[in-house]
Amino acid sequence: MAWALALGLAGGGAAQATPAAQMNPRKGPSAWPERLQLDYEVSARVGSLPLRASGQLQWLLQGDLYEASLTMRLPLVGARIQRSRGRLLPNGVQPLAFSDQTRRLRRFELDWAALRYRHQRDHEAEQVGPLQTGTQDRLSLFFELARRLRLQPPVADALWTVPVLGAGGVQPWTLRLRAQEPTETPAGVLPAWRLARHNTQPEDTRMSLWLAETVHFLPVRILLQEPDGDWADQRLRQLPQA
């Protein structure tokens, strides 16, 4: 379902973030919020059922260690919580652990020294596979894309390829930076860069993100569309307090 992948883009403990964004004392383009919370309104369709939901993205940075969580709560369907923890390095976001909790729990551990990952669902047998340099989990991906936009002047139609870790292992995701456009959200009309998953296969989830400088190039809108017709549209509820 589309709402599932909206969270499938999130271990360690949950980030205890506050609504206010507090700026990291590091200067220049590498500056990053130490604490950030973004709240979203979500509309979705699961089968023939239209749904309304709430979502929340949290981030906590202590030194070069981060914790992030993404939560969505849908009536009838239930909650999905993803968590990612790792390091914020000069050359990119480096996740160390990732979990995805619905009725079942998936856990991933990333061993960068050995370039291997371990994956386990509930109490099933553990699976092991290779990592690629620069691999992101489906939540750390948001922050890696934001980091790139902070460091590089955006160029329309630029293509980025990022290795992304999921239940099927590490797969290359190609994303196209479309253009900056006014984006309607409950927080107002915000200028944001649209980034869309490119060259998807019929069985892939289609994903579009609208990344706005006003929230450190994190998403002010997330649109996911499943091959079976399910979809979820997540839009920023309000701007964080300065």
Rank of each mutant, 00 (worst) to 15 (best):
Q62I: 08
D64W: 01
L65G: 00
A68N: 01
L70E: 11
M72F: 06
P75W: 00
G78P: 01
A79N: 06
I81D: 12
Q82P: 03
Q82E: 15
S84F: 03
G86C: 14
L89M: 05
N91W: 11
G92Y: 14
Q94A: 06
Q94T: 05
F98S: 12
S99P: 02
D100I: 07
L105T: 08
L105W: 00
R107C: 06
E109K: 11
L110K: 10
D111S: 12
W112Y: 01
A114P: 00
R116H: 07
Y117K: 04
Y117S: 00
R118E: 06
D122C: 12
E124M: 11
A125S: 09
V128K: 10
Q136P: 04
L139T: 08
L139I: 04
F142M: 07
F143L: 11
E144V: 10
L145C: 07
R148V: 01
R150F: 13
L151N: 05
P153L: 01
L159V: 08
L159I: 14
V162A: 05
G168Y: 01
G169E: 00
V170H: 01
P172M: 03
P172S: 03
R176H: 07
R176F: 11
R178A: 15
R178C: 12
E181C: 13
T185E: 00
P186G: 01
P186W: 08
V189T: 15
L190I: 10
L190N: 00
P191N: 09
P191C: 09
P191Q: 09
W193R: 07
